[in-house]
Design a protein around this nucleic acid. Sequence first.
DNA 1: GATGAATGAGCATTCATTCAT
DNA 2: CATGAATGAATGCTCATTCAT
Lengths: 201, 201, 201, 201
Amino acid sequence: MGKVDENKKRKKEALFNTAYELFTTKGINSTAISDIVERAGVAKGTFYLYFKDKYDIKNKLVVHKTRELFDAAGNALNEAGISCLEEQMIFIINHVIDTLVENKPLLNFISKNLVMGALRSTLLTGENNDNDIYEKFLELIEKDKYDYADVNVMLFTIVELAGSAGYNSILYSEPLPIEAYKPFLYRSVRLIIKSHRSGTE
Amino acid sequence: MGKVDENKKRKKEALFNTAYELFTTKGINSTAISDIVERAGVAKGTFYLYFKDKYDIKNKLVVHKTRELFDAAGNALNEAGISCLEEQMIFIINHVIDTLVENKPLLNFISKNLVMGALRSTLLTGENNDNDIYEKFLELIEKDKYDYADVNVMLFTIVELAGSAGYNSILYSEPLPIEAYKPFLYRSVRLIIKSHRSGTE
Amino acid sequence: MGKVDENKKRKKEALFNTAYELFTTKGINSTAISDIVERAGVAKGTFYLYFKDKYDIKNKLVVHKTRELFDAAGNALNEAGISCLEEQMIFIINHVIDTLVENKPLLNFISKNLVMGALRSTLLTGENNDNDIYEKFLELIEKDKYDYADVNVMLFTIVELAGSAGYNSILYSEPLPIEAYKPFLYRSVRLIIKSHRSGTE
Amino acid sequence: MGKVDENKKRKKEALFNTAYELFTTKGINSTAISDIVERAGVAKGTFYLYFKDKYDIKNKLVVHKTRELFDAAGNALNEAGISCLEEQMIFIINHVIDTLVENKPLLNFISKNLVMGALRSTLLTGENNDNDIYEKFLELIEKDKYDYADVNVMLFTIVELAGSAGYNSILYSEPLPIEAYKPFLYRSVRLIIKSHRSGTE
DNA sequence: GATGAATGAGCATTCATTCAT
DNA sequence: CATGAATGAATGCTCATTCAT
């Protein structure tokens, strides 16, 4: 990479990181582009060289952060050596929840955009396609000793439940703190998984 | 009510209705207070006589609309004469879903604010407390032939799942159109309910 | 007029006058709305209370100034007591030219917009309709001892010629200073008038 | 011409043509230099190698396009073999009008700049001086069987009248469509020419 | 209570121009 | 010669809020 390209990358990343920082601390609505560029140490016009507007950079950030989150969970799963689908799903959910418990600004930031539909397109689009968590999900399901029907529906239901309930439990300890709620959540997840086993209905 | 008071109420309601109309068509961010007062036919200053700012009227609208939605479902349940808790819960969820399918702007409007935590405070606060859906839920659970443990957790889980999954299914037909997804959703709801029966775990 | 209305009028007129001053000295493109409001001593938002944007105020100024110019010419004609159409037309043109010779910024300002089509609509639209110069023209033509054919064409041709040639002669003394060019211009105007007399063609 | 020089010329012409295209479609004010270079396929800095700014390229375009317009008229006149000045002038005016009727963007573009003063300097400055239309005018006048006084004034008056009246008639059909207005215009032109014949006044 | 004129801080966006490569 | 990333001044416009009437 030439000197110029390096410089470009550095500026773009400075904007990216600064925007994330400000969005999570001040909120998106209260963050002006002037704030971002000022703190990132670039000129105002430079922002528009790389992003269309505030919502463009926001969307790109959501995709990026979500991908990071699930990639980490996927990698941890690989090292954990768990073979049963139920335990694998719980492991991933648990890993994501634990990460978000430690990083509530991130939870706040991506939660409003983390729904299964967006998730799938988010995780499928992008650079390192060999590490796609959605593909990984399908693979895990494939390899399990049981057969599953309506796989998409199953994943969707689990993600919506875990995302929505997890969000409130982590942020507001409502109806229980997340650690106390986890057993209930995982019990429901297991029930949903089991209900999708072929010949179970 | 005196003539003056009537006039006051009329103005306040005009603002209320106009705000709802504009929020659902233009979006909250793109709706200016000028838009509301202009369309409502009152002066700008009058707005501040009744509401603190745009978000004040928004919150009051969410509470109001959510209450209407669940009150209708509760009333319909009363007339339906269903005695089993499982069927009662499904009936209510189904009634709400069907209403929102017919009224997507309303879905859009309340969805971003309809989470169990908000729901409870929403439904418990307000004018006609004898008709509270949350109290009704507790009552229905009480009357069922089974006993239930961790009732709050159960309601929370169901509302989060139905709210989050229903929202996407209705608006984006994702992963299935709502009518096709309903059987899966209701199966999960039933499993969650059953898992809360005392001595079931 | 109440105190409030007086105030409104004063602000609007301050903007109007300041805009004219700046447009004629700095040019329209180089005049920012900030310049106008600052000099007029009102807040920026106030500008948008009365005008849509810079071009709105410009158009309204052109109409206003053009009307003033022709009204003055018409009034002078009334007092001059000239009965022959040829002399009346020359009188008006001459009066306008002489005014603009003394007020080149005004010439510059309205010239780019002074075409017969605009002129007619300009002069016909507005407040004091009884003094419309276009109507007056038609009246003068009507009263003349000769009959005229294609009156609209005649007026158009004269206005275009006098406007376009006058503009250059006054501003650039090109091909002659206006006083030297006048005899040629008026000779042409007379020829055009005569050529429109019925039965002359 | 060397390969490098050819390349230079190609870039300059690309900028020239693209600028004309954009000026006539989007308007000069709304055309940014970025637009021009982007569409022309050259780098931004390259623009400044050949032109000082937007108004520099605009002026050069006006000169270029006006010259083309009158050269074509002059060439057509040569082939038409008309000997009388009156008819020659009408021929040229008519040729220019007909061209502009077919090419209204061009009319729009040059009209705001086409006044006799500019015309003369335009037509006299430039590359192929032997074909200058202004010189040609003088030559035609010289050769006519009549003698003419105040030749500059005559040409000026005719150009201003035809330019100004033609512009409105073509673009706005005001006060008549150009074809209907032509007889009136040409009658006036003839009268102006005749009035300049020596010993006529 | 009701009005609506006035405010002015605040913000997104554009764009001509420069200059290191 | 050519490039195009970077700049940052400039500016139009919005809008919540106030307050005299």
